[in-house]
Simulated assay, not measured.
Amino acid sequence: MSTVAHNSHITPFLWFDNNAEEAARFYTGIFPNSRILETVPNQTGTSPATAAVLLVHFELDGTRFTALNGGPQFPFNESISFVVHCATQAEIDDYWERLTAEGGSEVQCGWLKDKYGVSWQVVPAHISQLARSRKAMQALMQMKKLDIAALERAAQE
C-alpha cells in the first residue's frame, strides 16, 4: 500500500542567485490574488552570504511557488516557462508590460523573459483554439507580444 498522500500538490521551485525575496515581491505585485506566505531566514550557510532569506513561499493567483536563494549555479532558461492565459488584449498588454519592465525582454510568439531571466508566455485564453488554424499560427510566429484581434482575423481566413 502506498504511503503517498493522494492530495499532494505540485509546487514550482525557482532557484535564484540571491534575490528570491525581491523576485517574489515583484511577481506578487503583478498578479491578482497573490501574496508572500512565508520567508525562511538563511541560517544554513549554504546560500550566498548576501541573502538574508533562504526560502520564500508565495502564491501567484492561488498557485503556490517556492523561491530559493541558492547562488549562481543554475540560471533560468527557456526550457521551462509559465503560461499566463488572458481573456482580453488589455490583460495581455498589462502582463507583457509589467513582466518585461526593468530589464525584461521580449522574445517571440508571446514569450518573454522577465528581469530575473524567468520565461513567461502571455497568451489569449483561447490559444489552443487559435492554434488549430494554420494562418493564425503563421501570424503568431511573426509576433512578439500577441495581438488577439489579428490572430482571430487570421483564423477566419
Rank of each mutant, 00 (worst) to 15 (best):
I36A: 08
H57M: 10
L14V: 00
E59A: 05
H57T: 11
L54D: 01
E59M: 13
H6M: 13
G29V: 11
A51K: 06
Q43E: 11
A23P: 06
H9W: 03
A52I: 03
E21T: 07
F58I: 07
F31W: 09
N33H: 14
S34E: 08
P32L: 00
N33L: 08
A49T: 08
L60N: 08
P32V: 13
L60S: 05
A51P: 01
T50P: 01
D61S: 14
N19F: 00
G29P: 10
L55D: 09
F58Y: 09
A51W: 07
T39D: 06
R35S: 10
L14D: 02
V4L: 14
I30P: 02
T44A: 03
S8A: 14
H57F: 10
T46A: 08
A5T: 12
E59G: 03
A24N: 12
N7I: 05
T44F: 01
Y27Q: 08
E38C: 06
E22I: 13
A24E: 07
S34Y: 11
V40P: 01
N33I: 07
G29R: 07
I36R: 06
S47G: 15
R25F: 03
A49S: 15
S8M: 13
F31S: 06
T46V: 10
V4Y: 04
D17H: 13
I36V: 14
R35M: 03
G29Q: 09
L54Q: 15
L55Q: 14
I10R: 01
T44W: 07
P12L: 03
D61N: 15
V40Q: 04
L37I: 14
D61H: 12
H9C: 10
V56S: 05
T28I: 14
T46R: 11
V53T: 15
I10S: 00
N19S: 13
W15T: 06
E38H: 12
V4Q: 13
F13Q: 06
D61C: 11
F26Q: 05
L60R: 04
W15R: 08
V4G: 02
H57L: 12
T11S: 05
D61L: 08
L60A: 07
D17L: 00
Q43H: 06
F13V: 01
Q43C: 07
V4M: 13
P32T: 09
A24Y: 07
E22A: 12
V40T: 15
A49E: 15
H57S: 07
T11A: 12
F26S: 09
A51G: 01
T39Q: 09
F13D: 08
H57I: 01
A51H: 06
S47K: 00
T46N: 02
D61M: 05
F16W: 02
Q43T: 15
I36N: 03
H9K: 15
A51C: 02
T50D: 14
T44V: 01
F58Q: 03
A24H: 09
A52E: 13
N19M: 02
